[in-house]
Design a protein around this nucleic acid. Structure first.
Length: 493
RNA sequence: GCGCCCAUCGUCUAGCGGUCCAGGACGUCGCCCUUUCACGGCGAAAACAGGGGUUCGAGUCCCCUUGGGCGCGCCA
């Protein structure tokens, strides 16, 4: 997929005609997990590519050897897969292309569009320091921009290894035509001669991004708006190479609930955390797409509808805050709309990751799955996440004698036991055991005893589930079966 | 400090000069349904940051202020 153009004569870029195939790319740096902002960026790229019949490439920006880890790469890949955002083609590892990056730069040097700079880190610090002191923007002052070779030789002799800097335009302005931000103008005097190659010869991010996006044929660069200024700098690099820039679309960042930058304390968890919390990928996608993008009042989109509806013009320019309450609500909608079988399958798939699912992991079996499926209609109405679902289904795997929570204990203590004792023989005498037959028996008892239904149903619930809340009690009776139900009632009575 | 971006209910947003005394969703509150809790139904409170313009008319266009955010690395 990556072609390696000859270094000497850079081939002219294919014209980005309207008919050209759309190529988007998601380019995370593997210095951490895939956080929620990155996930949304990936989603937008994926949706855009799918909508236009194009492809989304995945590139790992691992040119920072110090901070890149394989664990992070695995987490990113895993996160994308879980979210259902499949990339096209092979994963591109940026560092593997360092040779190509360096070659491209030597071409720029030959053309006088880049130059060697021997300024030391200490000099650079001093430069920034004095600039700050004098109230000037902290920028490279271009001191090696036009030095003669004698100075360079002297520096070489002193053992200094140069970085390669871009000879950027110093006057005029650079315009980024952004599909989300509109036309953004940057005065060139505010953009300095950025480093292309480090003194050890490795490429910087700025250079690598441009060369890779070009070589990969990226037609659309959709990324967080923290890169907006970078787009101007990268435009300079594109110009130096004589390449056409891709279409830029800088989407606003996602903020935490307090409006501040998303931090780990807020919602900047890895997507694996959302899986552990029991969210459905489809629900997370739906929530994420509505964060910063909208199409009128519409809230719910199936994946296919999302692909059809998505467009860059619907992306807003103001940052959005992450709101767990809404995500939860949306997840609840997805769960209630899902079939019983699908939900059991979702649980099964998420079982290794779900919090507090130990009892289910241990007891998982075809029989339990059958029980879960049977109980699911009543369960899914009451849960907003898979974890809540598991929690609500806890009575299925609870061992006799059941532990009673505080409220359940109170219900039993406040006269509940007497009702259970009176009810037990009536239930035991039932010829067949079903929700309907147990309900009839309970209602008959209520009739004769003069109690309210709730006065009997609640103790039953406590005895059968150990809690004060559960799905409809007759469904619980049916799912648990005669022996287990009678046993639990006897335990509690 | 300099540059850039942003600003409608608590939150996500609709609104692309008049049909907006601003609509939807989440959340909140109330009522109904009801064996619990949910779900569901009905209803309520809740916003155009402030100030100048432009215009017959501004949430919608322009400017300023204020408040957020991002960037200014031999990080990405």
């Amino acid at each position: 997929m990556l072609h390696e153009p000859p270094v000497a004569s850079m081939p002219p870029v294919a014209e980005t005609a309207m008919s050209e195939k759309v190529v988007t790319r998601f380019a995370p740096s593997p210095t951490g997990f895939l956080h929620i902002g990155g996930a949304r960026t990936a989603l937008f790229n994926w949706l855009f590519a799918r909508k236009h019949g194009g492809v989304m490439a995945l590139r790992i920006e691992d040119t920072d050897r110090e901070r890149s880890t394989q664990a992070a790469i695995d987490a990113i890949l895993d996160g994308l897969k879980w979210l259902g955002l499949a990339w096209d083609g092979d994963v591109v590892h940026q560092f593997a292309r360092a040779g190509r990056h360096a070659e491209a730069v030597s071409d720029l040097i030959a053309q006088g569009r880049a130059y060697r700079c021997y300024a030391t880190p200490a000099e650079l610090d001093e430069m920034r320091e004095s600039a700050r002191r004098e109230g000037r923007p902290p920028r490279y002052d271009g001191r090696w921009r036009d030095r003669d070779s004698a100075d360079a030789a002297k520096a070489e002799a002193a053992g200094l290894r140069p970085v390669i800097r871009l000879r950027a335009p110093q006057e005029g302005e650079t315009i980024v035509e952004d599909r989300v931000q509109g036309r953004v103008v940057f005065p060139n005097k505010d953009l300095d001669d950025l480093v292309l190659l480090r003194s050890d010869g490795t490429p910087t991010y700025m250079l690598a991004v441009v060369v890779d996006d070009h070589d990969m044929g990226a037609t659309h660069v959709i990324r967080g708006d923290d890169h907006l200024t970078n787009a101007a700098r990268q435009t300079h690099i594109y110009q130096a190479f004589g390449w056409e820039t891709p279409v830029f679309a800088h989407i606003p960042l996602i903020h935490g609930p307090d409006g501040a930058k998303l931090s780990k304390r807020h919602g900047a968890l890895g997507v694996d955390a959302y899986r552990a919390m029991g969210y459905l990928p489809a629900a997370l996608r739906n929530y994420l797409v509505r964060l910063g993008w909208s199409q009128g009042d519409r809230e719910f989109f199936s994946t296919q509808e999302m692909i059809e509806a998505f467009d860059l013009s619907g992306v807003g320019r103001s940052p959005a805050r992450f709101d767990f309450a809404k995500l939860e609500n949306m997840n609840g909608h997805y769960m209630r709309a899902a079939s019983e079988a699908d939900l059991v399958a979702e649980i099964e798939g998420a079982l290794p990751y779900l919090e507090k699912a130990d009892a289910f992991r241990a007891a998982w079996s075809p029989a339990l799955k059958a029980q879960l499926t049977a109980a699911m209609p009543g369960l899914k109405e009451r849960a907003k996440t898979l974890n809540e679902l598991i929690d609500g289904a806890g009575f299925l795997v609870a061992q006799r004698p059941l532990a009673m929570d505080a409220k359940a204990g109170e219900i039993l203590a406040a006269g509940g036991k007497a009702h259970l004792a009176a009810l037990a023989p009536r239930l035991a005498a039932l010829p067949d055991w079903s929700a309907a037959s147990t309900e009839a028996a309970v209602r008959a008892y209520v009739e004769t005893s003069g109690a309210k239904l709730g006065q009997v149903a609640q103790p039953l619930r406590a005895a059968l589930t150990g809690r004060s809340t559960s799905p409809g009690i007759f469904d619980v009776l049916a799912v648990l079966g005669r022996d287990e139900s009678l046993g639990r009632i006897a335990d509690a009575a």
